[in-house]
Amino acid sequence: MTYAERAPRVRRPAQALFGRLCVINGFLFTAGTVVLALSPATVSAPVLPTELPVLLTGLLLILAANAFLVRRSLAPLDALETLMERVDLLRRGDRLTEQGNGDLTHLVHTFNGMLDRLEAERSASSAHALAAQEAERQRIARELHDEIGQSLTVVLLGLKRTLDRAPEDLRPELQAAQETVRDSIDEVRQVARRLRPGVLADLGLQSALAALASEYPFVTRRVDPDLPELGADVELVLYRIAQESLTNVARHAGATSAELSLSVRPGELLLRVVDDGRGGITREGAGIRGMRERALLIGALLTIKSTVDSGTEVRLSVPWDGQAR
């Protein structure tokens, strides 16, 4: 049950705040009047010099008590402002505790409910966007493999036939063109594999991670051999986050070594990508935000620790209760 589903029916926040301040000040003024009426203290007209300290002391006590009670009553507003400044819909679960403070609890309650709705809408829109992205990747991969790849293969075969009949002085140039086309075919196939990891669907996550790590000679792979049976969505998220992390390492980290690991721990599956590069990530780009969006789709927690000159660690913790997801 979300905060919004169990929201109580109370007065509007502005009315509640106005009433609270009236009650606090009314209480203090009434208490001051009672004390003045029952105490032996008297005030002359005009006020005598000896009575001024009594009056000033009473005034200071009333002001201090009023400031304390009002400050304590409005404390949730400070916490609410702090949460507003730091809230990020890609990091779930950041909420204010609803306790005490009378009518202001409803304001906190309403804000928490709003975050619930925004996170649900963000997750739904992210799921649709990522599903469309995966479909587009598969379409491009098929076109690269079936059309461009086959066209290059036809060109390669044509060059081979031409090379067999070509005069000796043209053979070196034709052989160079042949090697260029062959390299292009390999590159097209590699791009297609990255766009659509067929090995993931055909052979499973372990084989897909092994193939991914083999593309980077500086990467060491450690995958638990007893991985549980996972759903297609979970496997795809794990693979894509590992892929994006290794791509970032290769492009930006300047690392000499990195480790890709996936292990089973009590209550979680833990994916880690650690490198010894320059570190010091200060701004999250589109790639990292995309990783966070994918993590949200399966209820996982993504954390990134990056220290200058000490490398970067990407951790994805996937809740796991021992059953297939």
Rank of each mutant, 00 (worst) to 15 (best):
V264C: 10
L104S: 01
R294Q: 15
E244W: 09
F68T: 15
S151Q: 12
D202H: 14
T57H: 06
G311W: 04
G102N: 06
V34N: 04
M291F: 08
R95S: 09
A16R: 07
R251K: 15
R196P: 00
L38R: 06
E173R: 14
L90W: 00
E51C: 09
R12D: 06
L301I: 15
S126W: 02
R12W: 10
L90M: 06
R194F: 11
R71T: 12
Y216D: 13
V108M: 03
V223S: 05
A300R: 00
A67F: 09
Q99M: 12
Q206I: 10
R265V: 14
I24A: 07
L212S: 08
S317V: 11
R289Q: 14
R142N: 07
R11L: 14
L38Y: 11
G102L: 05
V318G: 00
T247N: 06
I140H: 02
V35S: 02
V318F: 05
L296E: 08
G277I: 06
R9S: 05
R272T: 12
V274Q: 06
Q178V: 01
P217I: 13
T162L: 08
V314D: 03
L59S: 06
L69H: 03
A75D: 10
L48I: 03
G204L: 03
L104T: 07
Q138S: 11
T97F: 00
L316A: 06
R194D: 11
Q243Y: 01
V223N: 09
D275L: 08
I281C: 03
D186M: 07
L104G: 02
R86E: 15
T2K: 14
I148H: 05
N66C: 03
I185N: 03
D78G: 03
D321E: 11
E81P: 00
L56W: 11
H145G: 13
P167G: 08
D116S: 01
T82Q: 13
P46G: 07
L118I: 12
Q150P: 00
I24W: 06
T82V: 14
L269Y: 02
R294N: 11
L118R: 13
D276S: 10
N248V: 06
N101K: 10
D276L: 07
E293A: 14
D169S: 10
L77Q: 06
D202C: 08
A255H: 12
I148P: 01
G158C: 07
R20Y: 09
G58Y: 04
E244L: 15
V181R: 01
R182I: 01
S126D: 15
G287F: 10
R315Q: 14
S245R: 07
D276P: 00
A300V: 02
A211E: 12
